[in-house]
Write a protein that binds this DNA or RNA. Structure first.
Length: 770
RNA sequence: GGGCAGGUGGCGGAGUGGUAUACGCGGAGGGCUUAAACCCCUCUGGCCGUAAGGCCUCGUGGGUUCGAAUCCCACCCUGCCCACCA
């Protein structure tokens, strides 16, 4: 017997929309609960079943919280700037604005068809000028605080996308966007000094509740290490008469006595000066090759160590021994000082290098760190792996950076009242051949006047990365239509921090770190009330294709939610995605699994047809089942064990299905538990039998009913199961022992044996040790 | 190479010191039906046995324990993340 999901789901979605049933109150006596899911990038292909897993699971929590009397904020919006839309625009000759509008319409329709309880009145879109006005304003706060600076740096350059990448986006030497290899290129870029916050981003992890693996990954990414900088001086003056020194960074100053050579990164500024004439040719050839190597190649640890001698020596300041200076690409210019003291005895890489080039390996005693640092006049320093954030993109589809170049006043901020700096319409979206943004070729955009002196000036033509808009969207939800401020202080104070935040593991070191930093900066300047934006962070596992691989358009194994909604309904899809496996872990899609969940919902419908009247005597066994279900489902939702919560609901319905009669009260309790998982069906049945108004409380279990009167106790002999007995749970050992011995089966095993010990665990088992 | 998470029936997975395989899928048999679908009932880890019952089983091998999928040690394998960070 199948229920009509189409009419039921449509009816309730319309009703919720009309009533604005999920609108959060900015002023309320209720306790607030801010429940956040990462907002989607509205791609042309529509919603992915992976989105559904995250949104449906958190919808369950949001709905349960509302029933529990919380004032719940569960918002949604669009993270719409970025390359996929721009590349699609280039390919099709359409405007990114039009493509984005179309994609968001598709996503909105699909999300509404899932019956998710988002507060649609707070929808935000990062490409809306009313939104990016504030992204630009926040960038200017960084600029005014001296945290945004333009620097000529070696950047990761993707030759295919013609775009500079942050280190985080170029991990492993591969472009985060297109998967192609990344090159090094020198470029003037806007940078944001996230490293100034490295220590706080690390230590404040102690104040938040993140999944342990998320916390660990952030710690590793920030990569704090304590060490010392020590100068190795040249023994004699160079030809110019200057005395040179190499400053090395080491985390092991105590091993300095065993430092038998020094290594510079090929990009180190002293390479030129230290190379003697007879080694110049060799050194220059090596440096040229090293520069061409991608990070990927240099990062390949299995690769044979390479290097070259400069011809110079410096003095180990601890023991005054002369040590040779080498150049090798296993030393990175971007970490520490770009120079190391090599201690083959204590470092595997140094050892491999020393062995290959016949450098001395000496075993010498360790020295106390403080003693070394004092003797060699070094200084203790803390270094981080974290790099500053490359904030410029030579691309069209992003927020224009609101700065003006004036020859007299250098970089000048666009005044607040002139924000937003609107993204102009252009003919072509491709970056220019020299890699500049398409905005650079629009004279009417570029040419302006200096806000300070009024003389002719030029606008910055780079745009921001799409991590900009997503770094503060959770703040805008709080006051989405405010024209005077990004959000009012009162409302921020009411809602922040986010109580629970869910997203993918792939955003742990990008979005999550950036947005924490961004929020901390705003906090330091008095714009937001909390130092940390998210009190608790969780992550969901990928929904894989049924063959266990990632779903991808190119492989044609993408499951379209529209087809599922049509055939099985929103409740079935939502519940199946919660049932398919543990929330945090990747799980393959299974069409059969979906059918199983739909059968369960049909069974709920069938049970409704046998609901008795209120004069029926109580079926106490079924009462017990219902109250156990209340207990388990409640705790499972809190622990985000949605899969076992669904299993428990299934058990309950199976019991109701088998029972001769199901009372109104029993069924009502069950429907309340079902509501956060399958809100349409539960609402429909609640309305026909009871009232949807009854959804203003979450069922409480009766502690006496969740305890069984009689339990099955396992009886073991030497730890092996030999039988079971039915007994009261509170029975003491002697009762259980007597009863067990009466069992013929058990008596046989104990016959003629000397019982050394009896172990009794009340409610669990009794074990005879013979 | 390092870190993290894992390895349980034919499949997705429950169970983290006390009856291994909850729940779902799939499969077998039966019922309903003119027939099929839906639905309902029973069975469903392996081996031995007519049965009662016994033995084996949670990647592999050891250990701790009255008792181990669960704790410890070693090894093998898979996934994810990081990867020459001095």
């Amino acid at each position: 017997m199948s229920y009509n999901h189409k009419s039921i789901e449509k009816k309730w979605q319309e009703r919720w929309e009309k009533k604005e049933a999920f609108r959060a109150d900015d002023v309320s006596d209720k306790k607030k609960f801010y429940c956040l899911v990462e907002f989607p990038y509205p791609s042309g292909s529509g919603l992915h079943v992976g989105h559904v897993r995250s949104y449906a699971s958190f919808d369950t929590i949001a709905r349960k919280r509302r029933m529990q009397g919380f004032n719940v904020l569960y918002p949604i919006g669009w993270d719409a700037f970025g390359l996929p839309t721009e590349n699609y625009a280039i390919k099709t000759g359409r405007k990114p604005q039009d493509i984005t509008l179309e994609s968001t319409q598709t996503f909105r329709r699909q999300l509404k068809a899932l019956g998710l309880s988002f507060d649609w009145s707070r929808e935000v879109n990062t490409t809306d000028p009313e939104y990016y006005k504030w992204t630009q304003w926040m960038f200017l706060q960084f600029f005014k605080a001296g945290l945004a600076y333009k620097a000529k740096t070696l950047i990761n350059w993707c030759p295919k996308d013609k775009i500079g990448l942050a280190n985080e986006e170029a991990a492993g030497g591969v472009c985060d966007r297109c998967g192609g290899p990344v090159e090094k290129r020198e470029k003037e870029q806007w940078m944001i000094a996230i490293t100034k916050y490295a220590d706080r981003l690390l230590s404040d992890l102690d104040t938040v509740n993140y999944l342990p693996k998320i916390k660990k990954q952030q710690q590793d990414w920030i990569g704090k290490s304590e060490g010392a900088e020590i100068d190795f001086w040249m023994g004699s003056r160079m030809g110019s008469g200057r005395l040179l020194c190499i400053r090395v960074f080491t985390t092991r100053p105590d091993t300095i006595d065993g430092a038998t050579y020094v290594v510079l990164a090929p990009e180190h500024p002293l390479v030129e000066l230290l190379t003697t004439d007879e080694h110049r040719e060799e050194v220059e050839a090596y440096v040229a090759i090293a520069k061409k190597r991608t990070e990927m190649e240099r990062g390949d640890e299995s690769r044979e160590k390479t290097g070259v001698f400069t011809g110079s020596t410096v003095v180990n300041p601890f023991n005054s021994e002369a040590v040779p200076v080498w150049i090798a690409d296993y030393v990175l210019s971007t970490y520490g000082t770009g120079a190391i003291m090599a201690v083959p005895q204590h470092d595997e890489r140094d050892r491999a290098f020393a062995e290959k080039f016949g450098l001395p390996i000496v075993d010498r005693p360790l020295v106390a760190i403080d003693e070394v640092v004092a003797k060699v006049k070094g200084n203790k320093v803390t270094r981080y792996k974290l790099r500053d954030w490359v904030f410029s993109r030579q691309r069209y589809w992003g927020e224009p950076i609101p700065l003006v170049w004036c020859d007299e006043h250098k970089w000048v901020a666009v005044p607040d009242e002139q924000l937003p700096v609107m993204l102009p319409e252009v003919e072509k979206y491709e970056p220019t051949d020299d890699g500049e943004s398409p905005l650079a070729s629009i004279a009417s955009f570029v040419n302006t006047t200096c806000p300070t002196c009024g003389k002719p000036a030029k606008r910055e033509t780079d745009t921001m990365p799409n991590w900009a808009g997503s770094s503060w969207y959770f703040l805008r939800y709080i006051d989405a239509h405010n024209k005077e401020q990004f959000a009012s202080a009162d409302k921020l104070k009411h809602w922040m921090p986010v109580d629970l935040y869910n997203g993918g593991m792939e955003h742990t070191t990008l979005h999550l770190l950036y947005s924490r930093f961004w929020n901390k900066f705003l906090f330091d300047h008095g714009f937001v009330p909390t130092s940390e934006p998210y009190a608790r962070r969780h992550s969901h596992g990928l929904v894989l294709s049924d063959d266990g691989t990632k779903m991808s358009k190119s492989k044609g194994n993408v499951v379209n939610p529209d087809d599922i909604l049509e055939q099985y309904g929103a409740d079935a899809l939502r519940m199946y995605e919660m049932f398919m496996g543990p929330f945090e872990e990747p799980v393959p899609w299974s069409a059969n699994g979906l059918i199983g969940v739909r059968r369960f919902l049909d069974k709920v419908w069938m049970v409704s047809e046998k609901i008795g009247d209120s004069t029926m005597p109580r079926n106490e066994n079924l009462d017990r089942v219902v109250h156990k279900t209340i207990k388990k489902v409640s705790s499972d939702i809190e622990a985000m064990k949605f899969n076992t919560a669904v299993a428990e609901l299934m058990k309950c319905v199976n019991a109701m299905h088998e029972a001769h009669e199901v009372s109104r009260n029993q069924f009502e309790l069950f429907l309340k538990l079902l509501f956060p998982f399958a809100p349409h069906l539960a609402s429909e049945l609640l309305e026909s039998f009871f009232s949807v108004d009854s959804l203003n409380d979450w069922p409480q279990y009766d502690p006496t009913l969740v305890k069984d009167k009689v339990i099955t106790l396992a009886v073991q002999v030497n730890g092996k199961l030999r039988g079971t007995i039915e007994i009261a749970p509170e029975a003491d050992q002697s009762e259980a022992e007597t009863m067990a011995r009466e069992q013929e089966q058990i008596a046989r095993w104990l016959d003629g044996q000397e019982i050394k010990k009896v172990v009794y665990v009340s409610g669990r088992m009794i074990n005879f040790v013979v």
